[in-house]
Design a protein around this nucleic acid. Sequence first.
DNA 1: TTGGCTATTTAGTCAGACAAATAGCGATCT
DNA 2: AGATCGCTATTTGTCTGACTAAATAGCCAA
Lengths: 250, 250
Amino acid sequence: MRKKKDRAGDGEFAREGLTNSRIHGSIARTLGVAIVSGQYAPGDILNNEIDSSEQLQVSRSAYREAIRILAAKGLVESRPKTGTRVTERNRWSLLDPEVLAWFFESEPSEEFLKGLYELRMIVEPAAAALAAERRDDGQLERMRKALIQMESQTLATDAGQAADRDFHDTVLEATGNAPLFTLSSSIGAAVRWTTIFKQRKRELPRDPMPDHWKVFDAIAAARPDQARQAMEKLVGLALEDTRAAIDPKD
Amino acid sequence: MRKKKDRAGDGEFAREGLTNSRIHGSIARTLGVAIVSGQYAPGDILNNEIDSSEQLQVSRSAYREAIRILAAKGLVESRPKTGTRVTERNRWSLLDPEVLAWFFESEPSEEFLKGLYELRMIVEPAAAALAAERRDDGQLERMRKALIQMESQTLATDAGQAADRDFHDTVLEATGNAPLFTLSSSIGAAVRWTTIFKQRKRELPRDPMPDHWKVFDAIAAARPDQARQAMEKLVGLALEDTRAAIDPKD
DNA sequence: TTGGCTATTTAGTCAGACAAATAGCGATCT
DNA sequence: AGATCGCTATTTGTCTGACTAAATAGCCAA
């Protein structure tokens, strides 16, 4: 019924571009972007499978697999005779990593960004507090390494940004709460796109390191309240930066 | 390229059992349950498509569509030559409504339940505070109606439980934060299964209404801090009840 | 007017073929 | 011995075309 893995940790799948390099993945992405960007409105009915697959020059089966992906993420719903229609927004899996990526592929609304930050503002301080109580040495070490990397590379480099995400990821992981950790992809997306927006304005105004180190120190010192407050400040400042980068006035 | 919806709000798709009534949906469910219940471990490689589809007595295309669903939810990853393997737990979309349902189909671990409650404990009080600031009259009305319904039906009935979920849903919705609202399915699942676990012990110990009304009153009175505290207490008590229902000692 | 039957449209399923990717092996060269 | 290159077998990916089943709309009869 199954084969055991031969070697533990045999080095991660390639992952990025794996699904998109295949036809079903790229069609899903195309349609997904069109849906979240409002090109199709909720309630709209897609052309039937035959026409759609012809227009896209792919086989019906590849097109159907793409639709299954979208349906799995709550973006569409299919039924015989009626066709495939775009579902209401409140059923979309907005926190799904791919859906999030599709959002950011076409200039997400300011409201959406604000929502993501508000979520960070709720989740991350609480997570930092839990992490301060539960983190193990390995996690602490990874946080420290991430911050050192971030410090030396700066947020202008990919490596620096990855280190930033690593830090936030590890905080979530250190809560030991699996459902909570799931949100790391969403938060990571917010972090990532924030940085991009900021850089668009060619201003990297504030040194983010002191705030990050304060969070780390509090977690390392096992002080939940201090960690919560430090993280609150960190996210709050990031929000302000992003707002400033978006708003023309400033 | 698309057809507009003819009638606005022409009455919701049937939704429950829609995906599961189709072969691809039921295969996805079967495999999904097997995966989240640990029957397949992360890193395990599923049999190839030909063998699997034969064993399950379905066509290869139906089986493939099922795999696409699982892949969209982060449970598996496919590539040529290597096959389809179960991904690491930290990539699973634990907050996806279907994944959550699969979890609850086979006795979720106590740790997982604890994680969900911890998430509620983080998210719902904050949401209640936001709702107190932003709710509109329609949402208030729906909350009130839900509580009245819950009061008259009690949590022993489906209608009463649905009203309970409605209430929590509406609070999330009233935050006006779309990403946050996405969590309602997860929280709804926690609420639903909580009630079931409690009833299994045949004890419906405490009257949940006073706590609910306190939350409502604070939101209606536009008092964020009061709403936060009331919700904190509500979720905290629910957690205790669930713990008591699980733990044999008590 | 109503109730049920039928025609039609759509997604769903199936079968079988061929294409593309790639892990792993083996031969070859250094 | 070790590294490198290329082959090959295996697996998913894609395609085609046919048939099935579900759901709806519209007709027809009572």
